[in-house]
């Protein structure tokens, strides 16, 4: 039975985010120094619903998840978050430069065994 603690997601994973037209992507991965068990946890825990909980702004948007276990992580593609066409550039962070840092700052329950 594993014990979990509520802590920033960024305690366990790194992220990089960016834009492609009106879509944003966030790569989330487990750094080289951490266990493979943490990679398994990330790939199993990360669902579109989980992303919608952490980033409520994405509630009504299409989300693709692309697991890349060889890179120890997953790519999240969020469709239309940056606005399509004329609404492009209106968002607070119009090129999603810091979307990854925002999701890393959200608190989630992470098994303590993965933080060792």
């Amino acid at each position: 039975m594993s014990v979990s603690t509520l802590r920033p997601l960024g305690d366990l994973v790194y992220a990089r985010s960016g834009d492609k037209g009106g879509n944003a992507n966030i790569g989330l991965w487990v750094p080289a120094g951490r266990s493979d068990a943490a990679v398994d946890w990330l790939l199993q825990t990360l669902t579109a619903e989980w992303v919608r909980e952490l980033l409520p702004e994405t509630a009504d948007l299409e989300i693709d998840l692309v697991p890349l276990p060889n890179l120890r992580g997953v790519n999240i593609v969020i469709h239309g978050i940056l606005g399509a066409g004329v609404a492009e550039g209106v968002r607070f962070d119009p090129q999603a430069k810091a979307l990854g840092e925002w999701i890393r700052s959200r608190h989630v329950a992470i098994p303590d065994r993965l933080m060792a």
């Binding site: 990089r16 492609k20 992507n25 790569g27 991965w29 080289a32 693709d64 593609v77």
Partner: peptide, 10 residues
């Protein structure tokens, strides 16, 4: 790794 994830889709 960070740069491999940058602006990719599928």
């Amino acid at each position: 790794t960070a740069q491999l994830f940058y602006e990719i889709q599928g």
